[in-house]
Amino acid sequence: MNLPATGRRVLISGASRGLGRALAQAFADNGDRVAVHFGSREEEARATLASLAGEGHVLVGGDLSDPAGAADVAGRAAAALGGSPDVLVNNAAVNLPHPLADTSYEDWAALWQRHVSVNLLATANLSHLAARGMIDRGTGGRIVNIGSRGAFRGEPDHPAYGATKAAVHALGQSLAVSLAPYGIAVASVAPGFFGTERVAHRLSGEEGAAIRAQSPFGRAGTAQEIAAAVLWLASPVAEWASGTVLDLNGASHLRT
């Protein structure tokens, strides 16, 4: 299997802002060509596209919660990049509050369905589509899933988020075993709290102090730190990390 170190075709789901933007920038800086996926935030996705170094990057919109939509996104990304991706980063996710005691049954059921459709099923469907292309091409590849610390420590106000991220970790490990014979390595990262423009307001005042106190380093993580770890997991030298779930939480939650 001959996976190049640079110049790869990379599909990043949910890349319009935040971590998705940092991921796109990291791969572009590495010399790869990136398909920037967005669901509804086209203007922000175009800003991400404009920020990328190098050439050959493309914008692909579409609803990943629908299997047909996921297939359409994968197909258009492959057509625009000149072939199916060498690297898939499953970053698209929803994280909507729904504490049980304060959520009606109707809202509870709807929010669970939404989290499962986007966080888990879209990840599974894009992984199938990308992996089939890698298998058919015969050159191997990489799939990296964005999970969460919440899969291990619990998310009392966001239980569907925690549960679906735990499922994403398990999915990645299952695929790591099944796809290894084809030279495809699959890994996940489990970030703790990290700063983006979407959550910047939470890092001020008492809430910000409490978030920073979660880590003995006394700070929150950065999207760039998460992106750097993903870039390594997607590299040719990281094949032996296939199946791992890499904690990226500044020692704020230690698993045994």
Results as ranks from 00 to 15, higher is better:
31 G>K: 10
52 L>F: 04
73 V>M: 07
227 A>C: 08
115 H>P: 01
22 A>M: 06
49 L>A: 05
102 D>A: 05
111 L>S: 01
219 R>E: 14
21 R>L: 14
194 F>T: 05
126 L>K: 06
57 H>I: 02
242 S>P: 09
206 E>M: 04
67 P>S: 11
91 N>F: 08
79 A>H: 13
160 A>D: 13
119 N>Q: 02
7 G>E: 11
156 P>E: 10
172 G>Q: 01
146 I>S: 04
174 S>R: 13
4 P>K: 08
190 A>C: 13
206 E>W: 04
232 W>S: 06
65 S>W: 02
252 S>G: 10
241 A>T: 15
105 Y>G: 00
197 E>M: 07
177 V>G: 11
59 L>H: 12
60 V>R: 00
189 V>S: 00
155 E>L: 03
201 H>V: 04
84 S>G: 14
15 A>T: 07
25 Q>W: 03
68 A>L: 14
35 A>N: 04
89 V>Q: 07
204 S>I: 00
246 L>F: 08
29 D>I: 03
161 Y>F: 14
119 N>K: 02
8 R>I: 09
19 L>F: 15
163 A>C: 12
89 V>N: 05
10 V>K: 01
59 L>D: 11
69 G>Y: 07
224 Q>P: 09
193 F>H: 09
102 D>L: 00
97 P>S: 08
5 A>P: 05
110 A>N: 03
229 A>S: 12
72 D>Y: 10
176 A>G: 07
130 A>V: 08
53 A>F: 04
27 F>V: 09
139 T>P: 02
229 A>R: 13
240 W>P: 06
167 A>Q: 10
81 L>F: 11
231 L>P: 02
208 G>V: 01
242 S>F: 09
215 S>W: 05
111 L>G: 00
229 A>Q: 13
126 L>F: 14
164 T>G: 03
121 L>W: 03
95 N>C: 11
125 N>F: 10
63 D>C: 08
226 I>Q: 03
17 R>I: 05
193 F>C: 02
105 Y>A: 01
232 W>F: 15
127 S>C: 01
163 A>Q: 05
164 T>S: 04
106 E>Q: 09
117 S>C: 11
220 A>G: 06
89 V>I: 15
50 A>D: 13
242 S>C: 10
88 L>E: 05
10 V>T: 03
